[in-house]
Simulated assay, not measured.
Amino acid sequence: MTADVITTNARARPRARREPWLDWMVLPTLIVMAVVVGYPVVYTILLSVQDYNLLDFTPANYVGAQNYAKLAADSVFWQSLLNTAIYTFGSVGIAALLGLVLALLTENLGGARFRAVRTLLLMPWAVPFVVVAFLFRYMYLQNGGIINAVLLWAGIINDPVPWLNSAMLALPAVMVANIWAMAPFFFLLVSAALSAIPNEVIESARVDRAGTWGMIWHIKLPFLRNPLLISSLLMVISNFNDFAKIWAMTQGGPGYSTSTLVIYVYRLAFESFEFGYASAVGVIWLVMLMALAWLYMRALRMEKR
């Protein structure tokens, strides 16, 4: 009798619902992503193991890993990789530091004065990147540029400086334009993070007679660490793909002094038409971007803990 009741109850009990391995509502998005993103990536990987040049008027020829072996002896590739690292990490690091300093300096401003200063500081972020590039390109002109004109008037230099025509000065000059456009982003983010610091923490530090530097170093910076880390990684990924500013200002020159990986891939594919070799460089570029994206996602998960 008891066994029959238990069996009946077990049959009457509803089965536990299992979570589906795929949500069918996102299937259209997955299909679009597979076509728009997946197909070009797979096709690029296939091209990277082929010798394919449109100027040869011959079909693509499978060469295995020869394109990747060629990268090891390609000085332009290594220079472009070095330029990419300097441009990306240098610009992001300096812009983050400037944004942090500006946010700390304007933290205690209030009312209309703060709104005016914030609007003024955020204006570069609202300017399109191509406009920024052409603006600084004309400012850097050797003859007629405002930067050389001011330096000559102040007596700092005796002759006009070829900012964008010098292999040593071109990359730092482009980085200045990039930092000018990117610093407001960090200023806005750090300002928001500073306003989110609990007042109780600030008041407790003041009761303990914490100085200005002690307040910044021991109280504020720990609260700003995660927002700065995530925003920096996001900007590193963005600058790693930066094409418009560099191409509009120098087109990767003079020579290859300002050529980054994205500029080098563009030159290989659309000037030399070496699609196979350009695809190999693009695959290396994609792997680096995936590593940066993995770091970003990991930092995002750490912040949520």
Rank of each mutant, 00 (worst) to 15 (best):
V5H: 08
H218M: 12
N148D: 10
Y43W: 12
N165F: 02
N108W: 14
V150H: 00
K245L: 14
T212P: 01
N226F: 05
T119M: 08
P160T: 10
G276I: 11
A85D: 05
L268K: 07
I86S: 03
L27P: 05
E19I: 14
L189R: 06
N143F: 13
L292Q: 13
D4Q: 13
N148K: 09
R115G: 07
S259R: 12
I237T: 12
Q66I: 03
A126L: 13
I246N: 14
A293D: 03
P160D: 03
T2C: 03
A244W: 02
S257T: 12
L105H: 00
S279N: 11
M175R: 08
V127Y: 02
L194E: 11
N178C: 11
V174T: 11
W294H: 06
V36E: 01
M302C: 00
W24A: 06
V262W: 06
A291L: 15
G144K: 14
I86A: 03
G110H: 06
N9F: 04
V63P: 10
L188V: 13
P198N: 08
Y52Q: 09
I216M: 12
A280W: 05
P124A: 08
S232K: 08
N53P: 07
I147S: 00
F77Y: 13
A181F: 10
W213C: 08
Y140D: 07
V42G: 03
V207T: 12
L194C: 07
A96E: 10
I146R: 06
I246G: 02
G155A: 08
F57N: 09
N165A: 04
R113W: 13
R206K: 15
M297Y: 06
P162V: 01
M175L: 04
A73M: 06
D74Y: 00
R206I: 14
Y296P: 02
S75G: 11
A196F: 04
L228S: 10
Y266K: 10
I146M: 10
E203T: 11
N61F: 05
V42F: 11
V127A: 12
L109N: 02
A177N: 10
G155H: 10
Y266Q: 13
L229E: 11
V63E: 03
M235A: 14
P124D: 12
L97M: 04
F136G: 05
A299F: 01
L194D: 09
Y87D: 02
A181H: 14
E303A: 15
I45A: 15
V41M: 15
S272D: 10
M168D: 06
V76M: 07
R267I: 01
V283Q: 01
L22Y: 00
V49F: 11
L122G: 10
W153Y: 06
D208G: 06
R118L: 05
M33W: 11
I31F: 15
P28K: 11
T84Y: 08
A173T: 13
V41I: 15
M33I: 15
I157N: 02
V32R: 02
V5K: 07
G64R: 07
L109A: 03
L300C: 02
L229C: 09
L97E: 07
F187S: 01
P40A: 09
V174N: 05
T106F: 06
Q251D: 04
I157W: 00
M1Q: 05
A299M: 07
M290Y: 09
A177V: 09
Y52K: 09
D74W: 08
V190M: 08
P227H: 12
